[in-house]
Amino acid sequence: MKEHIFNIKSEKEFTEVTLSIFKHQFQNNKVYRSFCDLLYIHPSDVKTIDEIPFLPIQFFKSRQVLSSLEPVEEVFTSSGTTRSITSKHFVTDIQLYKESYLQGFAHFYGSIEDYVVLALLPNYLERKGSSLIFMVNDLIAKTNNQESGFFLNNLQELTKKLIELDKKGQKVLLIGVSFALLDLVEIQKFNLKNTIIMETGGMKGRRKELVREELHQILQEGFGVAQIHSEYGMTELLSQAYSKGNGIFETPSWMKILTRDTEDALTIQKTGKTGGINMIDLANYNSCSFIATQDLGKVHNNGTFEIIGRFDDSDIRGCNLMVL
């Protein structure tokens, strides 16, 4: 079943593969099995995607969420304060992650070899275990272009490079965390014609949080671009969704977003209603493909989605019974 994940061509095929992976993870993932048992849900009762239980993302902080007995090849960890407990994603097949982000990028942006990738991710570089750094490092290598690379605090050097490459007509992807992109446009106003600006979210405590519209407006004016792109991913996922503007995200064919009722975590809502984001990521074959995140959002009729905010811990109603 693993080999079919990245070849899904239809909704029917997605459903078949998803139900098969649910059965596999129910049988092979002790944490997920305990969770399903607690809810009295068995694969024989599940006929549609909406009936699959979604594991609260907090379990990645307290358990080894694994559906495989293979050796762990990588452990990805979330960022957090010194006091907070971080999530850990134990990855037994790093090739699945590579295939996911390479095919996902190619689907939305074309060949990575057409780009110079410049990465402005200081807070991620300052710690170990970031799945984002792993992905971007590999994308940089895959460009086969010596101009690609990471930047930490050397914003003047990055400014010079951005202007030079853009003037040459080189396609550039600048991927950065929000606060660092804001730092950059404060020291230089750009007028870029061949560069994609992609933010990965979050001020990470470095600046006052801004609503997306305000952040994107400042960045659009600062970089001289019509749209700000966004990447949506997390430690607990092996796939990414991308937005090419206005905060509207699309998923690759092996991902699907559903929303759950904010008052009843086990009820899946119809499209168009704001709710908790539930994520199906079939690339999580060896961990758990069905995750209830702490993000709030809305799914549109065409399958695109937007992120509206986050639950406070006190607001995660209906999940209390799910702490094993």
Rank of each mutant, 00 (worst) to 15 (best):
K189W: 02
I280F: 07
G245I: 02
D281I: 10
E213G: 07
T262I: 15
S230K: 00
R206V: 11
F190D: 10
G297D: 02
L237T: 08
G224H: 05
T251W: 03
Q294N: 15
G224I: 06
N278H: 07
N246L: 03
K189V: 12
Q188A: 11
Q220K: 15
T271K: 14
Y242F: 15
A283W: 05
Y232E: 01
N246C: 02
L210H: 04
M198K: 01
T251F: 03
I197G: 06
Q294Y: 09
T267V: 14
K256L: 11
G224R: 04
G272V: 07
T200W: 01
W254I: 04
S287F: 01
L237P: 06
N286E: 12
K204L: 02
L258M: 15
M279Y: 13
E214D: 15
T259G: 08
K204G: 04
M203L: 02
V211I: 12
L282K: 10
G233V: 10
D264Y: 12
I280D: 05
F190H: 10
A241Y: 01
N246K: 14
N194T: 12
V225P: 06
D261G: 08
Q220W: 00
A241E: 00
Q269T: 07
L282R: 07
H300Q: 10
S287D: 03
G297M: 02
E209S: 11
L258H: 13
R212S: 04
L215C: 04
G245D: 04
H229K: 00
D295L: 05
K298E: 12
T195G: 11
S239K: 07
T259P: 08
K244E: 12
T259H: 04
I197M: 06
K193R: 15
L296Q: 06
S243A: 13
L296K: 14
T200S: 09
R206G: 06
M198Y: 03
T259S: 11
E213V: 07
I196N: 10
R207M: 10
S289H: 06
I277S: 03
L215S: 08
S243P: 09
Y285G: 06
L296R: 12
L215K: 11
T262N: 08
G247V: 10
V211R: 13
N286P: 01
T195F: 07
T200A: 11
Y285W: 14
N278Y: 08
D264F: 13
I257C: 10
D281H: 08
I196M: 14
Q227R: 14
Q217Y: 09
E250Q: 15
S253E: 13
Q294K: 12
I257M: 15
G276Q: 05
I280H: 07
H229P: 01
R206W: 03
F249S: 05
C288E: 03
E199I: 01
E221I: 11
Y242M: 06
E231R: 05
E221S: 12
